Amino acid sequence: MIDKPPKIMILYASYGDGHLRASKAVETCFHSKGIKDVVLLDLLAEAHPMLNELTKFIYLSSFKVLPAVYGAAYEITKDLPPKASFLRALNFFGTGKLKEALHLHEPDLVIHTFPQMTLPGMIKKTGRSLPLVNIITDFDVHARWLHPEIDRYYVATEDMKREMINRGVSGDRILASGIPLRPDFCHQPEETAEFRIKLNPDKKTVLLMAGAYGVMQGNRDICRTLLEKGDYQILAVCGRNRELYKDLESRFGEYPDFHLFGFVQEVSLLMQASDCIITKPGGITLSEALACRLPIFLYRPVPGQELNNARYLRNKGIAFIAEDAPSLCQGIDTLLLDEDRLSLVRAEMENLRRPEAAEVIVNDILEKWFGSETRKAPVEIGSARPRLVIH
């Protein structure tokens, strides 16, 4: 226990957008409790910027070129022991920058939202006592997240907790908290009603999210198939992919039921205004959809953690996987026109949705290590967020 607000460091990575979104959600929750000294560090980008850009390029390219190669590498390394040479080599990157950051910020606790386990071995060598926690941002457990020096794991589901126990992690070090989300996923924002008015009330709304970098394939075919059917209006989010934005705008911009967006911060507004989502199965986006009770359709998930995420939710009866646009459209028709089946899907979602995961995680950290009464403070929901408007 300490007699002053703790200093928190969060280590993340800029692959996709999910690790940063999880980090920001936790940071926001700490701030709401009066703990302002929270530092976010993109370790690999700071330590090895050229290597970071190269590996990010390879990761993003894996969605288009030879995704099976990435998937094979993921599966081969999935069950490696923590002392495996491959993992130890990966965990060496960023050592120098991390030493500088620890000296500069002197954190009282470090959180990982990306599986770069450089710190545990480094801390062990110094003999210093520093609590280390991992927030796993997928619905799948990979060996890169597991390390004997991690004090606490926060995972998406009880199934993940059981799997980690089977792999030798003590159960008292694991909390099935859910994946941390921004506060606007905990409560329906006031803007939603206004946002819905701008949509056609006679048509179902399909939210198409191609990922933060717009890497999901098949967007053009999906939009064409849905629009030609005439029963749906589409909210298409291209992320930071300007080429995708321009392509969809040129092809479908004249359709009155097609609404196009680039990178969107207020995702909760779009989700809560929609009847279903088509997306790539990143852990954060899936958790956001679950929080909004939004039926999930996953299009051609790439091998690796995203395919495993997709299969997990499919096996739970929550998500639907499609390999082509016609079968995707048929799946949407089948679900949205069957109220009984839709009710069953949403009932299953209740078993997995954890919209207040950030609050659970922060409260647990404060109680376990700092004995802080600030853990009882509610999360403050900001009221000055920009409104999304469809033109």
Rank of each mutant, 00 (worst) to 15 (best):
D247M: 14
A156I: 00
L98H: 02
G382L: 09
L109Y: 07
H147R: 04
L60I: 08
N308C: 09
V65L: 13
L90Q: 14
K83E: 15
K280W: 14
D138R: 11
L130P: 10
D140M: 13
A73I: 14
P281V: 07
L235P: 03
Y12N: 02
S327W: 00
E373P: 07
H112Q: 10
K33V: 09
L227H: 06
I174M: 07
S85L: 09
V362S: 01
R300V: 11
G331P: 11
K229D: 15
A89D: 06
T55S: 01
I136H: 07
T205I: 09
L80M: 09
L119Q: 02
I2F: 03
L337S: 15
M122I: 00
H112M: 08
V345L: 03
N200G: 03
P82K: 02
P82S: 08
S250M: 12
P6T: 05
R88N: 13
A236P: 10
L175K: 09
N241E: 11
G18R: 09
S327D: 09
F195A: 12
T28F: 07
I179P: 01
A22T: 13
V38A: 02
A72T: 11
L54K: 15
R346D: 06
P256A: 11
Y213N: 10
L337V: 12
P82F: 06
A291P: 02
A25M: 00
L102D: 02
G16K: 03
T113K: 01
G382A: 13
E53F: 03
D184V: 13
Q330A: 12
M117H: 00
I197G: 01
E356Q: 04
